[in-house]
């Protein structure tokens, strides 16, 4: 009797175990199927995302006859890099000049912008003065206004300053970014106030404190700001086109658009793609080496450039 009971209980147990195993086996299969589906979906999406880049590179090494075949080749028959040489010699494009202009504007505006941003963020984060909160709220409110609204008047302003067709006009109007001040202020506020007071007791000046304590601690944010600002001048299109669209001051995006703007459909597409690739290359290099900072900065900004 006793044996019987124990036997039945044992068989019940094994049955349950078997059930469990069956369930886990089907679960496993479902899980694998789901994973395969996920990878399939992500793989297809990744191919779609990458395809324009691939097409740009492939088209840029094709010769014009091969490019204009009625069935385009997915892999070029012969790799012809002469487009890349020609891009730098093209008289419509003047790529070297465009690179130099953009680099100059980018570096100068980033350096000045960083100084202004650091000083303002320090004032907002560490110093007490009348009307601080009101002023900061007013600054944040201006972020809601679309930039086009400012452009109309700024165009007149720089015109009356006599800044048209200079590098000044490309640099000065955009030196202050409320968003960067906001970002850095948040970062500065995370540094405990005791550090500042201790430094004051030791007789450290504000600027020395900024340089020795605040800036090293906020370095990741400063790097993010630097990259976003540089990318901004690399990608800016409308303002430069309005105020400095001459050969000596033209920036790279404008140069690219104006050089290939014949709308008759017979543009030398391989050459154009080579130019696009050359213009995109620095962005990719920056991305490869500084991905972490870009993604961090972008996830908090939501603005391009």
């Amino acid at each position: 009797m006793k044996d019987n009971v124990t036997g039945s209980s044992a068989s019940v147990k094994t049955m349950r175990e078997r059930d469990m195993q069956k369930v886990s086996a089907t679960q496993k299969i479902v899980k694998i199927c789901v994973q395969v589906a996920l990878y399939l979906f992500l793989g297809v999406m990744a191919l779609i995302i990458l395809f324009p880049f691939y097409w740009m590179l492939v088209s840029s090494v094709k010769t014009m006859p091969e490019y204009s075949q009625s069935i385009p080749s997915i892999i070029p028959h012969e790799w012809d890099f002469h487009n890349y040489v020609e891009v730098f010699q093209n008289e419509d494009l003047l790529l070297g000049q465009l690179f130099a202009n953009t680099l100059f504007v980018g570096v100068v505006s980033t350096a000045l912008s960083l100084v202004i941003t650091v000083l303002s963020a320090f004032a907002f984060a560490r110093l007490e003065f009348k009307g601080k909160n009101l002023l900061f709220a007013a600054l944040l409110a201006t972020m809601m206004i679309p930039g086009e609204l400012f452009t109309i008047t700024n165009f007149q302003t720089v015109h009356s300053f006599g800044w048209m067709h200079t590098f000044t006009v490309l640099i000065v109007p955009f030196l202050v970014s409320v968003f960067y001040i906001y970002l850095l202020k948040q970062n500065f506020q995370q540094v405990p106030n005791e550090l500042y007071l201790a430094a004051k007791v030791d007789g450290t000046t504000d600027l020395k404190y900024l340089w020795k304590v605040m800036i090293p601690l906020a370095l990741p944010t400063l790097i993010s700001i630097t990259i976003l600002k540089m990318m901004g001048s690399w990608n800016s299109y409308m303002w430069p086109r309005l105020v400095a669209n001459d050969d000596a001051h033209r920036l790279i995006t404008n140069g690219l658009r104006t050089a290939f703007t014949s709308a008759d459909g017979v543009t030398d597409v391989p050459l154009q793609m080579a130019a696009v690739a050359v213009v995109s290359a620095p962005l990719f290099l920056v991305f490869v080496f500084l991905r972490k900072y870009i993604m961090k900065g972008v996830s908090r900004s939501g603005i391009k450039g």
């Binding site: 324009p52 995006t253 920056v286």
Partner: peptide
């Protein structure tokens, strides 16, 4: 990390 004018051309 692309230039929207440049990739638009692609």
């Amino acid at each position: 990390v692309t230039n929207s004018i440049a990739i638009g051309m692609v």
